[in-house]
């Protein structure tokens, strides 16, 4: 187990390092002249030079990259080109709202997806299965902002049951905030339900067909007990990975959803930064989202190896 954990941690560090290289390559190397990319072709040369100096992008690339690495360790990503505020502060202010939205969405999606997937697998090939699979497929195919507009149209305009804008009164309780975040999280639920349900369904089907399930049934175990002790545990292992992957990707979906529902979160911050070409904020935000994905998949891998001895033993061999 220890060997596996150490190996897995080392891998995560390597991937994180590569992630910083990718983000650096896109935001600092690709534009050649960063300030020119921000200010546009018609800005006078002096202001371009001044902004480059201010951003530190007039220095050699190696120096710039070293500063990025140092910034990650010390949580210092420089200052926003647009507002002059420290980037870390901006991200800190918004990240918690995004986290609330993501957690609410996961709390709704994971149970729904798992139950839906298992229900579909138990009724494989029948109507309920087809409905769940088709709904999941359609939901995950449609972009989040399109789903959002449908939700606003139906729940906000026609039925008028939920608040459309996630701007809760100052000092609201968690419950009130969740109420305001319900519609945006439903938009995410519709998109991510399909992935989780599909995985839970596939896992259940293969566990149902496995030899140990047949043995358990044939030695007279009740159906409910077979499902509980043999099928579910094996069926849900692959689902954990998908939940972790989707947690990371959820933050991609947050961009559009937070813009539409006016959530003061990381996604909206990045879109605003993109409109203002605020590269320091944008590249730091991209790094944060990549790191969230990596931590989520790391935790999932560790959890799976804890639950499934075959994996940790294979790593030791």
């Amino acid at each position: 187990m220890v060997v596996y954990v150490l190996r897995r941690l080392a891998l995560a560090v390597v991937t994180l390092f590569l992630l910083t290289l990718i983000v650096f390559a896109i935001s600092n190397v690709l534009p050649q002249d960063v300030a020119r990319a921000i200010l546009g072709p018609f800005a006078p040369a002096e202001s371009v030079a001044q902004l480059n100096k201010q951003l530190g992008t007039d220095q050699p690339l190696l120096v710039q990259y070293w500063r990025l690495l140092k910034g990650i360790i010390t949580f210092d990503f420089g200052t926003s080109y647009q507002s002059g505020q420290p980037v870390t502060e901006l991200i800190g202010q918004t990240l918690s709202n995004s986290a609330k939205l993501a957690i609410l969405a996961l709390l709704l999606t994971v149970p729904l997806g798992v139950v839906g997937g298992i229900a579909a697998a138990l009724r494989k090939g029948r109507l309920a299965d087809r409905v769940i699979v088709t709904l999941g497929l359609a939901g995950s195919a449609i972009p989040e902002f399109v789903t959002s507009t449908f939700l606003i149209f139906v729940l906000g305009l026609k039925l008028n049951v939920l608040p459309v804008l996630a701007t809760w009164p100052e000092g609201s309780s968690i419950g009130t905030q969740a109420y305001y975040l319900l519609m945006p999280s439903l938009a995410l639920v519709l998109v991510y339900f399909g992935y989780i349900a599909r995985m839970a369904r596939a896992g259940t089907i293969s566990a149902l067909e496995a030899d140990y399930t047949r043995t358990a049934t044939m030695k007279g175990m009740t159906r409910a007990k077979v499902l509980r002790t043999h099928v579910l545990r094996n069926a849900l292992l692959p689902t954990i990975s998908v939940v972790a992957t989707q947690t990371g990707y959820l933050f991609g979906g947050l961009l559009a959803v937070e813009v539409i529902f006016n959530v003061n979160g990381l996604g909206r911050l990045l879109v605003t930064a993109a409109k203002a070409k605020d590269l320091p904020v944008l590249s730091a935000g991209v790094l944060v989202i990549g790191t969230i994905y990596m931590v989520a998949t790391l935790l999932a891998d560790l959890l799976i190896s804890y639950l499934n001895p075959r994996i940790r033993l294979a790593a030791n061999a």
Partner: peptide, 11 residues
Amino acid sequence: SLPIAVVGLLA
């Protein structure tokens, strides 16, 4: 590890 919409936005 990067959602395409996110890294696409940056690029």
